[in-house]
């Protein structure tokens, strides 16, 4: 690809099931559509939670093992990592982050997934994970187009930039 050639197609892989793990991929895919770039989302491992009906709006920020956590604001004092394990910490951090996202008009996961789908983006679930988690098509939100093998994913990503998150 040359420097001034426009990106025409992206395939975004979402592999993490935390709130902060899922949003970057959704924002990248939605942002692509907003620029007229073709976009596919491929959900794998815990990233699949973003499209499982009963999980998608209950994702949480991981506070355990996250040395970037700060109090009382995101750029405040570093929080000792052991504090992340205190009961309610994850719920607290999650509600703070959701509140800030709402202010920026970033939609909740289910609404965001619908927005990307309505914008013409495609959503796929990873076959290996679907088998491992024993999921059925009815467990997914209706915006999921298909369950794909990794081979099919590569076929479908021909000519695309692949972004792993």
């Amino acid at each position: 690809m040359t420097e001034n050639e426009k990106i025409r197609k992206v395939s975004v892989i979402v592999s993490k099931g935390t709130l902060d793990g899922v949003y970057p991929g959704l924002i990248m895919a939605n942002g692509a559509r907003m620029e007229g770039i073709e976009a596919s989302l491929f959900f794998t491992f815990f990233g699949l939670h973003a499209v499982v009906k009963k999980k998608m709006d209950k994702l949480k920020v991981a506070t355990v093992g996250n040395p970037a956590m700060c109090v009382p604001t995101p750029m405040g004092m570093s929080m000792p990592t052991w504090m992340g394990a205190l009961p309610g910490m994850s719920a607290f951090a999650t509600s703070m982050m959701k509140k800030e996202m709402e202010k920026l008009d970033i939609p909740p996961v289910s609404e965001f997934v619908e927005m990307i789908h309505d914008a013409g983006g495609s959503l796929y679930a990873c076959k290996a994970t679907v088998d491992m988690f024993k999921l059925k098509m009815q467990d997914f939100c209706p915006q999921v187009d298909k369950v794909l093998t990794v081979g099919e994913f590569y076929e479908l990503s021909a000519g695309a930039e692949i972004i792993f998150t």
Binding site: N30, R33, M34, D105, I106, P107, M115, D118, A119, G120
Partner: peptide
């Protein structure tokens, strides 16, 4: 306004916008 604001406040759907 972003897409979501156009949806919620403007009453214009994402599909319609695209």
């Amino acid at each position: 306004p972003g897409i979501r604001r156009m949806n919620k406040v403007g009453g214009i759907s994402t599909k319609e916008l695209y």
